[in-house]
Design a protein around this nucleic acid. Structure first.
Lengths: 191, 191
DNA sequence: ATTTGTACTTAACCTAGATTAAGAAAGTAA
DNA sequence: TTACTTTCTTAATCTAGGTTAAGTACAAAT
């Protein structure tokens, strides 16, 4: 039930009172697959932590092509950070891919918690640092690796995701069309 | 002299004593152009804040091609975040492009400051959040925009950088070869 | 059971950008 | 001032990956 506390306590140590305070600030909801939690154009109010199930964030460009920014399964956070921190309309959609139980933490509550429990600000500071490093690496990979190499890295890094999402979404994540992904895959199988 | 304090006070408010404590934890150095502050393969110990001058971070892939991750001029931070937080050998080089005065903040001192002055942890949390958002956008841009559109965005976002660095490094930042960049540029001039 | 939609494949053709190579500018060092 | 190095340009050729289009394989919905 409180696996989110477990997740937090891997990085900082909350006292029982702090844990209670934290729990009083969150909501838990379950969603069916295909539910859209955040729409582009809206101002985001929530970060999401996945207890179980699977979500993704993506944008849609002018040519009506989707690009997957991230997947989030058990134990991962997801949100439209740009909209959350700027409080301007975001560019991301966040959608449920598999029925999911999700912890909702509102921006206001999060900011209150930051002053009430500095250790939580540390937790999110570290979380954000790790996310930044991952994005920097993905950016450099997109600049210097081939699609095949990016796919290879994706498989090693997120072996469980591959079984769980339609392959066109993996194609989108690594930055190729579904058609090319299919061609590449059959090429790899021949080896 | 203390423009770094000005920079911090735009986001959080330090008391005079906190400012003094902070100043006691940093070093200021000047470097000549072409100095390399961080080498790939080394474990990074410092974050850098640019008082004046210009730095860049980049990596070199297996084919000996450079890819610029970021530029940093007056008022910007730069560092090899991956190596700093993991304390493993990094993949980045950080190099001085124009003679520069730089504030050095060691990882140890930064961590001490985080506990001594929680507001500083907030400052860096917000800084990291903003950087993450910028990297997310750049990632999506690389997936969905043409080289020309990325160049256009770069010009609007960093108008001063263009005058100051060799164009092959802008090419590298937006993710094209110098030859293609040159072709694209002359194509744009004809319009 | 049949339609409807969504995911995946295959193949022909196309293009943005890479590669290779060579020369012109321009900065730097002696 | 000359020589050396680095940057930039131009042009021919090449390729990773995109586009278009048609067909297949399932699910899910009626």
């Amino acid at each position: 039930m409180a696996q989110i506390l477990e997740n937090i306590n891997k990085i900082v140590t909350l006292s029982p009172e702090e844990e209670l305070l934290f729990l009083s600030k969150i909501e838990i909801k379950t969603y069916k697959a295909k539910t859209v939690l955040v729409n582009a154009g809206e101002i985001s109010q929530y970060s999401f932590f996945v207890n179980w199930g699977l979500l993704r964030s993506f944008n849609i460009n002018d040519n009506i092509v989707e690009h997957v920014l991230s997947f989030a399964c058990e134990g991962w956070w997801i949100g439209d950070m740009y909209s959350l921190i700027s409080q301007k309309p975001g560019n991301l959609f966040i959608e449920v891919l598999e029925d999911a139980e999700v912890v909702l933490l509102s921006r206001e509550n999060q900011n209150e918690l930051f002053t009430q429990i500095p250790k939580l600000e540390r937790f999110f500071r570290i979380l954000t640092e790790n996310s930044l490093v991952a994005h920097q690496e993905r950016l450099m990979d997109n600049l210097s690796l081939t699609a095949e190499e990016r796919f290879d890295k994706f498989c090693k890094r997120y072996p469980t995701i591959i079984q769980r999402v339609p392959q066109k979404q993996i194609a989108s994540y690594i930055g190729v069309t579904p058609e090319f992904f299919s061609k590449m895959k059959s090429r790899l199988l021949k080896k």
